Amino acid sequence: MNNLLVFQSDFGLADGAVSAMYGVAKSVSLDLQLYDVTHEIPAYNIFEASYRLYQSTSYWPEGTVFVSIVDPGVGSDRLSVVAKTHANQYIVTPDNGTLTHLSQSVGLSEVREIDEKVNRLPRSYESYTFHGRDVYAFTGARLASGTITFEEVGPRVDLDEIIELTIPEVEIKDHIITGYIDILDVRFGNVWTNINKQFFEQEGIGYGDTLEVTIYNHSRQIYKNLISFGKSFADTRVGEPLLYINSLEKIGVALNQGSFADAYHIKTGFQSKIQLRKVEKSIYR
C-alpha cells in the first residue's frame, strides 16, 4: 500500500462528520496522506457516488485506497466490503451499487466483506448510524497504512453477488442517437451524457457539424434546439450552447460562460433522456 487514503461522501462539510473520519484515519497512522474526491454528493445518491469514483480513481497510483460513503441503508443487513479493482486500487464502501461504474469499466478482481469483529473502531459497537467513521474510515486506514493486508479485511464475496445499478444503454435508430444525462458538471452547469464519442464517429459527426438536440424529462420535451459541435467553449459565442467531448470522452452540453442545467432546469437520471441528430448543411444559391 502507498499510504494514500481518499474519501468521498454525501456528508457535506457543515458539521464534524468528515473531520471525525480524518481523525480516525490519523489515529491508525500519522503517516497516512488524506485526500478527498468530494463530500458534496447529493444525499443518498448512490449512482452519483458510483460515477464520481469512475471519474477520478484512474488518475491515482496503484495501491490507493478509496473510502466511499453514500449509505442510505446504514445499519441494515447490507454488506460492508472492500473491492480490489483490476487497476490494483481498493474501494471501501457499502455494497449498495456504489461499485457499478468501476465494475463495468476497469473491472473488479476480488471483493471481501469487512469483518467488523476485527476491523471496526474500538468501543463503537453501540453506534449503528456512522459506519463511515466506525467501519469504513477505520478499515480503509488500516489497509492503506499496511496495518492489515487485503486478505485480513474479511471473507471473500462472490463477484456475482455484488449489487450493481441498472445503467441504460445508448441506442441509435434512423441516425438518431438516444442517450441519458448521467450527471452534471456541478460547478459550471454543464450536462454530461452517457454517449461516448465513438457514437459520433460512427454517425460521421465531426467538429463544426450542427445537431438537433432534444431533451426530455420523463416523456415531456423540455428543450429542443440546433447546437454546433466544437472542440472547446471558445468555438462558440458567450451565452450560446455547445456540444463537446468532456474529460471522460463522452458528449457534454454546455452554455458558454453560463449554466445549461440551470437555464433549462435539466435533471439527471433515467428520466432525463437526450436525443441527438446530425442536421445536413443547406447549400444556398
Results as ranks from 00 to 15, higher is better:
Y207C: 00
D77M: 01
Y90D: 03
I205E: 00
Y51R: 12
V279N: 03
V153L: 11
I222E: 08
Q8I: 04
Q275M: 08
S219Q: 13
R277D: 04
V24H: 00
Y223P: 02
Q271F: 13
T38M: 03
V65S: 10
G154V: 14
V153G: 06
T214P: 02
I177T: 05
E169Y: 04
V238S: 07
R78A: 00
V74K: 11
S50G: 12
R277W: 08
L102V: 03
K281P: 00
N194F: 01
F233W: 08
D71A: 03
F229I: 05
D262Y: 05
L32P: 02
I172D: 04
K197R: 11
L99V: 03
R78V: 00
M21Q: 12
V18F: 15
Q275D: 12
Y207E: 01
I215S: 10
I195A: 07
V191C: 01
T166S: 07
Q33R: 05
W192C: 09
E240S: 10
S76R: 15
T64K: 10
R52W: 10
S127D: 15
A43V: 15
A234P: 02
V186Y: 12
Y180T: 13
Y136N: 06
A25D: 01
F66Y: 06
G75W: 14
P122D: 00
P155Q: 04
V67G: 05
I222L: 10
R285N: 07
L32G: 04
T38F: 07
Y223E: 01
E201A: 12
I222T: 08
L108D: 10
T64A: 11
Q198H: 03
N45A: 13
V191T: 10
A43H: 04
S58M: 05
K281R: 04
